[in-house]
C-alpha cells in the first residue's frame, strides 16, 4: 500500500471513531425511544398504558373514586406516573436544598477567602466525594444515616424523602462545587483588585463584584446539579423506601422514576405494556437530563464570552 493510501486509511479510521460518540448518543435515544413508542402508538399497549393512563386520574372500577396509582403488577395494572414524578421532584428538591448552600458556600470560601495552602486541601477533599461510588452513598444512607435521621427528627418511617434527599445531595455537592469554583476562579483578578482599591471589603468584593460576574457559571452549576439529582439511581433506590405514594410530605417514603426502572425492569415480561412504560420513563429521563445539560453548557459558554469580552 502506498504511503498516501495508508495515511488516508488511518485518517478515515480516526474520523469514524470520533463520530462514534455521536452515533452512540443517537443510538441511545433511538433504541430507548423505539421501545417507548408503543405507549403512544400500539393500540394494545395504549389500552392498558396510554398517555391518559399515565398522566390522568383513573378508576379501576367505575364505582370507585378516581386516583393516581402506580401498581403495575396488580390484577388491574395501574400506571400513573404522578406518584413517581412527585417522588422524583421531592427527592431532588430536598437534595438541592441540602447541597446548594453547602456547595456554593464552599466554592465561595475556597475561591475568595481561603489561603492557597488551604485551597489545596479543600479541593481534593471535596473531589474525593465525587469518587465515592453512588452505591456506597446509598449503602451509607440505608444502613447508617437513616437511623440517625429517624431518631433525631422522630419520624415514622426510617426511609423517607429527607434521608434520600440528603444522600442524593452528597452526590450533587461535588458537581456544583467544581463548576461553581471554576466559574469564580475564572473571574479576572483585576476585578477584585479594582474593587479592593475602591475601598470595598473582601465580603463586599465577593458579594457585589465576583458573584455577579460569575453568575452564569453559578447558575450552570445549579442546573447541572439538578440534572444529576434527577437521574441518579442507586442512591434513591436504596435510601428512599421505594413506596409509590402520592404525597408531598418530606417524611414519607418515595419512589423516583429512575429507581422504578432499576427495581422493575429485571422482572418485567419482555414486550408487555409494563416493559414499554419503563422505557417510556427512560426516554423522559434522557430528554430531561439532555435539556438540563444543554442549558447548563449554554450558561458556561455565556460566562466564558462575558469574561473574555470584558477583558478587551
Amino acid at each position: 500500500m502506498s504511503r498516501r493510501a495508508a495515511e488516508s486509511a488511518i485518517e478515515a479510521v480516526i474520523r469514524v471513531s470520533a463520530s462514534l460518540a455521536i452515533v452512540g448518543l443517537v443510538l441511545i435515544f433511538v433504541f430507548i425511544g423505539k421501545e417507548a413508542l408503543p405507549v403512544l402508538l400500539s393500540q394494545e399497549v395504549r389500552q392498558e398504558a396510554g398517555l391518559s393512563r399515565l398522566f390522568l386520574p383513573q378508576s379501576p372500577e367505575p364505582s370507585e373514586p378516581k386516583e393516581f396509582a402506580w401498581q403495575p403488577i396488580s390484577a388491574i395494572p395501574k400506571y400513573s406516573l404522578l406518584p413517581l414524578l412527585t417522588g422524583t421532584i421531592k427527592a431532588t428538591v430536598v437534595a438541592l436544598l441540602f447541597a446548594l448552600p453547602l456547595a456554593l458556600g464552599a466554592a465561595v470560601f475556597s475561591s475568595e477567602f481561603a489561603p492557597s495552602w488551604l485551597r489545596e486541601i479543600i479541593k481534593p477533599s471535596i473531589e474525593l466525594l465525587a469518587g465515592i461510588p453512588s452505591v456506597v452513598l446509598g449503602f451509607f444512607a440505608l444502613m447508617v444515616m437513616a437511623t440517625y435521621i429517624q431518631d433525631l427528627l422522630g419520624l415514622d418511617y426510617r426511609l423517607n424523602a429527607i434521608n434520600a434527599g440528603i444522600a442524593l445531595g452528597l452526590a450533587v455537592i461535588p458537581i456544583v462545587f467544581t463548576v461553581a469554583e471554576d466559574a469564580l476562579t475564572a473571574v479576572p483578578q483585576s476585578y477584585r483588585e479594582g474593587s479592593i482599591a475602591l475601598g470595598a471589603t473582601p465580603w463586599q468584593t465577593a458579594w457585589r463584584v465576583v458573584l455577579p460576574a460569575a453568575f452564569p457559571g453559578i447558575f450552570a452549576a445549579c442546573v447541572l446539579g439538578f440534572g444529576r439529582a434527577i437521574g441518579e439511581t442507586m442512591i434513591v433506590l436504596m435510601a428512599s423506601g421505594n413506596a409509590a405514594v402520592l404525597s408531598l410530605s418530606p417524611t414519607d417514603p418515595l419512589r423516583t422514576l429512575s429507581a422504578t426502572i432499576a427495581a422493575e425492569l429485571g422482572e418485567v415480561v419482555h414486550g408487555s405494556p409494563h416493559y414499554h412504560v419503563l422505557f417510556f420513563i427512560g426516554t423522559l429521563l434522557f430528554l430531561f437530563t439532555f435539556a438540563t445539560n444543554l442549558l447548563g453548557q449554554a450558561f458556561v459558554e455565556r460566562l466564558k464570552q462575558r469574561l473574555s469580552g470584558s477583558r478587551l
Binding site: 430507548i32 447541572l224 437521574g231 442507586m234 426502572i261 427512560g282 429521563l285 439532555f290
Partner: peptide, 14 residues
C-alpha cells in the same frame, strides 16, 4: 458533553 450527563440507568436501558 451530553453523553457525560446521561443518567447511568439510561445506559442500562440502552
Amino acid at each position: 458533553q451530553n453523553l457525560a450527563g446521561v443518567p447511568a440507568i439510561v445506559f442500562g436501558l440502552f
